[in-house]
Structure formats: C-alpha cells, structure tokens
Design a protein around this nucleic acid. Structure first.
Length: 486
DNA sequence: AACTAGGTCAACCGCCAGTAT
DNA sequence: AATACTGGCGGTTGACCTAGT
C-alpha cells in the first residue's frame, strides 16, 4: 500500500510537519539546520524527487538527499522510503507460497532477524517480512496454533542434527567469524571430537536445538549460496552475538557447526531427527525439571506469542521470537500457560530456574513444539514409564531414559504415523483448512520408510546398550556432562 | 447504513555500531 | 581519545481497509 497519490496530502497526520524539536527526535541527531522535516506518508512528488536524486547520486549519504534535493525529509526517512518502496528491484505483491515457506523456515532458524531474512528473499524488504510474520503470528496465536508447521520443525531439527557433526565445522569457513561470538571462551576442538560418537544412537540433545536460532547471529554458512552476509551491515551481523552469559551457551554455540544442508535433507532424516530430539528433550526436561529445569521449554512460541521483545535478562542469543526460556512448562504437571500470561512469564525476572535455563541450551519455538509433541505422545501412552526411568544416577538416568523413550516414542510414533495423523499432535490441532499456505500440517505419512530406518537404528543401538557403554558414551558427550552440572 | 474488530501496511522511534573528524 | 555523524535494524504505532454483525 504505497501512499503516493496526491490525495495523500490530505492524509497527513496531524503532526506531519514537525517542530524542530521533533525533528531531532525523529532523525536522531539531525543537524544541519533543517527547518522543518515532514513526516507521515510520502507523496508522489516526494517520491519523484527522491528517485531522481538517488538515480543521479546513488544510494547512501541520505542526509545529503534532504540537504540538496529540497526534500523536507530526514535522511532516515529517505533511506526507508527508498529501501522499502522506491528501489527498482523491489518485488511487489503478496508473498508467493514459496516465499511464505521460506520466511517461516528462516524465522525458525533466525528468529526476528528481518533484515537477514529479507536478504534471503530478493526483492522483499525486512518491513514486509516483519509485517507478514507479525500478522501470521497473531492469527495463529488467536487460533492457538503452533507457529511452525511440522515440516519446518523437522527440517530444523534435522539440520541441527547434521550440525552436530563437529567435524564438518571448519574454522576456515569464511562465515565462521560471523557466528562465533567474539567473547566466547575457546573450547579446544578436541573436546568435541567425541561428539561424533554414535550420533545415531544418541539423540543430538543440545545439538538439536534449532541451531542458528540459539546461536549467535545465525549460521550464515547455512546458506552457502546466498549473499545476505554482504547485504547485512557488519555491525548488525555481530550485534547480539555476544551472550551475556558466556560459557555453556557459548559452548553450545561452538558445538554446532555451520554446515547445513537443510534444503537437501531427506524426510527420513528429518523425521528421525525429530523423533530423536523430541524424545530426548522430553526426558531431559522431565528428568531435570524438578531441580534445574534444564531444557525446560517455553510454550510461548507454541502459542504463537508474537512479542519478540526479549526480557532484559535474556541473553541475546538469536532466539526465534519468544523463544526465551520460561518455567518448566515442559513438565506434564505444568499445563500450558494461557496465552495472555506468556508475556508476563517472559518478563519474569530470572529465577534459579531461568538462570539454569540460560546455562542450558537455548530453547526455541521449535524446541517447544518438539517438547510438546513428545509430551503429548508420551502422555497419551504410558505416563508412568518415564517415571520409572528415574534412576539413582542422573547420568545414567538421562541416558537410559532418553534411550528408553526414544525407543518407545519410535514405536508409538510408528503407529501414529501410519494413522491419518489423527493423534494429539500439536501440529494437527485445530489446524485450519484454509489460510496460511503453510499452516497446513504436513502429514508425516508422506515420509515413506522413515520409520523402518529409525526402528532399526533404535533397536540395534538399544539392545546392545549396557551401562558401561552408556557411561562411556556419556563422558564422550560434554554437552551431557554440562547438562548434569546444572 | 452504521458500527466494530481484525488485518494490512507504511512510517516512525530508539538504539546501536561503524566511520569520520 | 573523544565526539559527531551516518546508516541500519527491530519494535511499535497509527491510519486505512474489509468483513462481519
């Protein structure tokens, strides 16, 4: 809705001509003795002036536009107008289904990084994407629907599983520095070599966290063919990349390599990863919930809370919007909070729980979804099963329980996946039959053969399991050890 | 026809970081 | 080194549009 008609002059807000004081507020440090700067919708005349100026002088030096072209607009306003409406390479019109899908996908990975998302969508602006997302979120929130469709969850989950292979992470990666927090303490690479151990057996617990969502400033390497790095201001790329809490979060960041082939992953891998992470988070959450809420999840995103404002205590960790941690809602005994309470909960000052959450891998909407999914599946079955898995040793407990539930969930999922997805999956709940192009849950039935492979993996690994091996493997998982520390 | 609620969109605001002086 | 300037980003706001009542 570009407002450029002459009649728009009548639409000028009451304060379209600001006082000099307002000018200053408007343009930051607006110097240069500008008399009066206009605000509000642009007119076609103003557009023409701006286009002419930019055509002649090129982009940049926006304050000069105002000084030299006679436009009564501050530089920031000129830049915005140009970037969002006058740029010749802008794509007008509604988002295509492909674009919508990509936005959802990117948001699952980046969070509210609109500019970076825009860089992935040629011809689209961050404002457009932001508006689209906020609208979508609101709609889904009202409908009580999950934010991310299941296939996105699967993709992200699988991607992070693949990222779990630290050997693919190369410090020679040209984007390495982009997602490596500058202040993170260094973890010798050797510490992570063992992470490769038996990835098939051990669910990529922390590695399954929607990687770039929790990572500092996104996995540029996830998009090797794209160039949004260059379109993003370096300062912005680094902004927020320094967790307020270093250490574990940094460790987690470092453990997740950048190589992502999420566009090429098979559904088999996706589904596997989904089950893995689902079950594993489920257990970690419940096994630790009583004491530390490690991995406890927020359902904010599940509920589609659009507020992306981070609590003041939240680490800047590139969480997808609303993916800050809250209480242990992942516990079966903690029902989902009402939507209205989400913001309140997010703003809750850090407690011991929330702090531990920070020290634990970061959650995301995807994680929440995964948690909830796992929860739902599990609770619908044997609610006492996981309780029995509470062993005296937390370490063994974590491993055994996760294995157990992985196995269990696999079987459960098998039955459900072969059914018309009529189970209590959050992804199928109340999903509208119309509306967003990608709000439709994608039936996992469309994943031929994924169960067979998964079962084979589970059975083979679980049956050969024994405590010694479990313990050894646990100590080969620094992430698990870290989890146990908190 | 009038009213209302929700959706959409453009624009503004405050903040931040890099660069220039 | 300190300050000013500039550009960029994410969040928010408010006006308009539209569908429903």
């Amino acid at each position: 809705m570009s407002v450029t008609s002459e009649s728009n002059e009548k639409m000028m807000p009451k304060n379209c001509i600001d006082s000099p004081a307002a000018d200053d507020a408007n343009s930051g440090r607006n110097v240069g003795g500008n008399d009066r700067l206009k605000k509000g919708p642009w007119t076609s005349v103003e557009d023409a002036i701006l286009v002419e100026y930019v055509t002649k002088h090129g982009e940049g030096n926006w304050n000069a536009v105002q000084r030299h072209s006679g436009l009564a607009r501050c530089g920031k306003s000129c830049r915005l107008r140009w970037a969002n409406h006058l740029r010749p390479d802008l794509k007008k019109g509604a988002f295509s289904p492909e674009e919508e899908y990509l936005i959802i996908e990117l948001h699952a990975k980046m969070g509210n990084k609109w500019a970076r998302m825009a860089a992935e969508l040629p011809g689209r602006t961050d404002n457009e994407i932001k508006n689209y997302w906020n609208t979508r979120i609101k709609r889904r929130q009202r409908a009580g629907l999950p934010v991310y469709p299941p296939d996105i969850c699967l993709q992200a989950s699988n991607e992070n599983q693949q990222k779990g292979n630290i050997s693919t992470f190369s410090c020679g990666d040209p984007h390495y520095l982009d997602f490596m927090p500058v202040n993170n303490f260094e973890i010798p690479a050797v510490e992570f070599k063992n992470l490769e151990v038996d990835k098939q057996v051990y669910p990529p617990a922390f590695l399954d966290i929607p990687g770039s969502s929790l990572l500092p400033q996104g996995f540029h390497s996830s998009y090797p063919d794209k160039s949004f790095i260059s379109t993003t201001h370096p300062s912005r790329r680094l902004r927020g990349s320094e967790p307020l809490l270093h250490g574990v979060s940094a460790t987690m960041s470092n453990t997740i390599p950048g190589g992502s082939q999420y566009r090429n992953v098979s559904y088999v891998q996706n589904a596997q990863s989904f089950i893995y992470s689902s079950a594993y988070y489920h257990n970690l959450t419940f096994d630790h919930a009583s004491s530390s809420s490690v991995l406890s999840g927020s359902h904010a995103d599940l509920n589609g809370n659009p507020s992306s404002s981070e609590p003041t205590w939240a680490m800047k960790l590139e969480l997808p919007s609303l993916q800050t941690q809250m209480g242990n809602w992942g516990s079966p005994s903690f029902p989902l909070p009402p939507l209205e309470s989400v913001d309140t909960l997010i703003q809750t000052p850090p407690t011991e729980h929330t702090l531990s959450c920070h020290l634990s891998p970061q959650n995301s909407g995807l994680l929440d979804a995964v948690l909830h999914e796992s929860e739902t599946i599990k609770n619908s079955r044997d609610s006492s099963h996981w309780q029995s898995s509470h062993a005296s040793s937390m370490a063994v407990n974590v491993m055994d329980a996760s294995s157990q539930v992985i196995h269990e969930t696999g079987w459960e999922s098998h039955g459900e996946l072969t059914s018309p997805l009529g189970h209590s999956s959050l992804f199928s709940e109340g999903t509208p039959t119309s509306g967003d192009s990608f709000d439709e849950p994608e039936s996992v039935e469309a994943i031929p053969g994924f169960r067979v492979k998964e079962e084979a993996t589970f059975r083979g690994s679980m049956q050969s399991d024994n405590k010694v091996e479990t313990t050894n493997q646990m100590f080969s998982r620094p992430d698990l050890l870290l989890a146990l520390l908190f």
